[in-house]
């Protein structure tokens, strides 16, 4: 049997919203350590890796390792029925071909239960090497979302150039071109508003902005986003999921012809 309970069910709903545009169905790997998921988008350009550690759940029980094929599209629809402050329990009974989502209101006056049929999915797993990135940019996730949305108006690709002083996002297309430059914050009241850059080497990389915009669907999970970059290496775009884990998106760069 598998059972995991989250006092703040909305966190799980945000995780699903963050994934479902990039991948519509995926296999969840459940073990004693927690829940993990790895999936590529249908074009094999981007990869997402999710970790939710067992100690982040209010209660967690996993008697044996399980691979659960789940439609994220359907799960998202079911989670929309959850109240904002509801507690969420995810359960898979032994020998069952369904996942049960139970939602309980904070005053314990309302209790809803939904079942979703599990799917048999082919999953391709990729080994992600440990990388010492040349540059890590930390910035407010709302700012990153806004920049990606704005860059998409100008072109299909965005070039991210990072130096020790700042980071520049630039795009050009048929309508024209533009760029936004953010300087490293020197003095901020709130850490979540800061832009910080750890740099060993300056980098300039170009990415499909459509994918960056899909990654930004996970921005409500975290005030800050980490962008880790090295030349000729996929971008790693990371949103923390509270203290319990993270969503990491990897995006293959565009290469000059």
């Amino acid at each position: 049997m598998f059972e995991a309970r989250l006092a703040q069910g909305s966190i799980f709903a945000k995780v699903i919203e963050g994934l479902r545009e990039l991948v519509t169905e995926a296999t969840w790997e459940c073990s004693g350590n927690g829940i993990t998921l790895q999936a590529m988008d249908s074009s094999h350009v981007a990869l997402v890796s999710l970790v939710l550690r067992s100690d982040g759940f209010e209660t967690y029980r996993c008697d044996r390792n399980m691979s659960l094929g789940i439609s994220l599209t359907s799960m998202s629809k079911v989670l929309k029925m959850m109240g904002k402050d509801d507690t969420l329990t995810i359960r898979v009974n032994d020998d069952s071909d369904a996942i049960v989502l139970s939602m309980e209101s904070q005053n314990q006056e309302e209790f809803a239960e939904y079942e979703l049929r599990l799917m048999d999915l082919d999953s391709e797993h990729l080994g992600i090497p440990d990388t010492d990135y040349s540059c890590v940019v930390k910035m407010p996730s709302t700012k990153f979302s806004r920049i990606c949305r704005d860059m998409a108006i100008l072109g299909d690709s965005v070039t991210i150039c990072s130096t020790k002083d700042g980071v520049k996002f630039g795009a050009k297309g048929d309508v024209g071109q533009g760029s936004i430059r953010l300087n490293q914050s020197t003095n901020v009241d709130k850490e979540e508003d800061a832009v910080s850059i750890e740099l060993r080497e300056a980098v300039a990389l170009t990415f499909a902005v459509r994918y960056l915009n899909m990654f930004c669907k996970a921005a409500p999970l975290s005030n800050q986003v980490n962008l880790s970059m090295s030349e000729d290496t996929p971008l790693m775009c990371e949103f923390k999921v509270g203290d319990m884990g993270h969503i990491r998106f990897y995006l293959a760069p565009k290469i000059e012809d």
């Binding site: 590529m40 074009s43 094999h44 350009v45 981007a46 990869l47 391709e124 797993h125 990729l126 080994g127 992600i128 090497p129 690709s157 170009t206 499909a208 290496t233 996929p234 990897y250 995006l251 293959a252 760069p253 565009k254 290469i255 000059e256 012809d257």
Partner: peptide, 14 residues
């Protein structure tokens, strides 16, 4: 002009 590379080019299948 840019060519979009695939993610599997950087990460190995296992």
């Amino acid at each position: 002009y840019y060519f979009q590379s695939e993610i599997a080019y950087y990460f190995l299948y296992y």
